[in-house]
């Protein structure tokens, strides 16, 4: 789109234009290449281990010495796909819940002045810093007690796991969004309020639309965080059919000497795909505003 607008002018003085093109845009391609190498090259090891027959991860600097799809086929023999579905469910539910709860709280902190607002924000920030060393015991005890009353919130329940994750959602995500809500001019809500809009209407129809990029970012971040979490998940989910990918795959390598890195690597490669695809899909929302703005400009 942007290139079509510059092309007519390039014909005038090609060399100067090309030089300027490189100074403004062109140099970014080699930079991107360097960054991609930096980001991806350690993961080449993972790919190499995934397609290798030997089960080691970092045993050698010679990569891709053998090629076999055995590890990927072995995934089918394991519960990998069941775990994958569980992970998508837990990750998706947590992401949606986190976005809804975090955005609502951020709206309140950003738009209303009330007693304890500043204190509440500070408290939210500080609570996240608590070292959760004993979480594995305390969450177990809590769910044990809850499960007696509400079986759906007991141990080995996916719903309970999602609730536990949502318990941690407010802190991080409110903070992520709070700052962005502040960048939305207040005049907008005031104008709407004068026109008779309720606070709920302002929230749902004005604010949320303006902060779509950050909603997408928060959704993605909490999806990724949930997707990779295994410390609480392995305490809560006791039967393998309910495990998430992180719990199940961690089990493949948790025994240092019996670690099946080949299978783990294949699983990690496959498991990375939904994250990358989700990002690819969400980019429209994350970066969408810019494209529209630049067209206008």
């Amino acid at each position: 789109m942007a290139t079509t607008t510059t092309r007519p002018t390039t014909t005038d003085r090609p060399r100067v234009r090309r030089g300027r093109w490189f100074a403004e845009v062109g140099w970014k391609y080699p930079v991107a290449a360097v960054v991609i190498v930096y980001a991806a090259f350690p993961l080449v090891y993972v790919l190499s281990a995934a397609v290798a027959r030997t089960g080691t991860l970092t045993g050698s600097t010679e990569l891709f010495r053998t090629f076999s799809t055995a590890n990927f086929e072995a995934l089918n023999a394991s519960r990998f796909w069941t775990w994958g579905v569980n992970s998508l469910v837990v990750g998706g539910a947590t992401a949606i819940g986190s976005v809804l709860m975090g955005a609502a709280a951020a709206y309140a902190f950003s738009r209303f002045s009330f007693r304890g607002r500043r204190g509440g924000l500070t408290a939210l920030l500080i609570i996240q810093m608590f070292p959760q060393m004993l979480a594995f015991v305390s969450i177990f005890l809590l769910l044990l007690a809850l499960g007696d009353v509400v079986p759906a919130l007991g141990l080995n329940s996916t719903v309970a796991l999602i609730c536990v994750y949502l318990g941690g959602a407010l802190g991080t995500n409110t903070f992520l969004m709070y700052g962005f809500f502040n960048t939305v001019p207040r005049e907008l809500d005031e104008a709407a309020r004068i026109d008779g809009a309720t606070h709920a209407q302002i929230y749902w129809t004005i604010i949320l639309r303006l902060v779509t990029p950050i909603l997408a970012v928060v959704g993605l971040l909490s999806f990724i965080a949930t997707f990779g979490e295994f410390i609480l998940a392995r305490v809560i989910l006791t039967s393998p059919e309910r495990w998430t990918l992180a719990v199940g795959m961690y089990g493949w390598v948790s025994q240092e000497l019996n670690a099946n890195w080949g299978l783990f690597a294949a699983g990690a490669v496959v498991a990375a795909l939904p994250v990358l695809l989700l990002f690819l899909a969400l980019q429209k929302y994350i970066v969408g505003g810019l494209t529209a703005g630049s067209v206008k400009g």
């Binding site: 709860m101 709280a105 305390s138």
Partner: peptide, 28 residues
Amino acid sequence: ALPLKYVLPGLAFLLVFQLFSMAYTGYV
């Protein structure tokens, strides 16, 4: 309770799950 209308859903989860862990650590 206007602000609380927006904060309460997240706060409820936070109180139940996060603060319980903290309180338990304090007790231990």
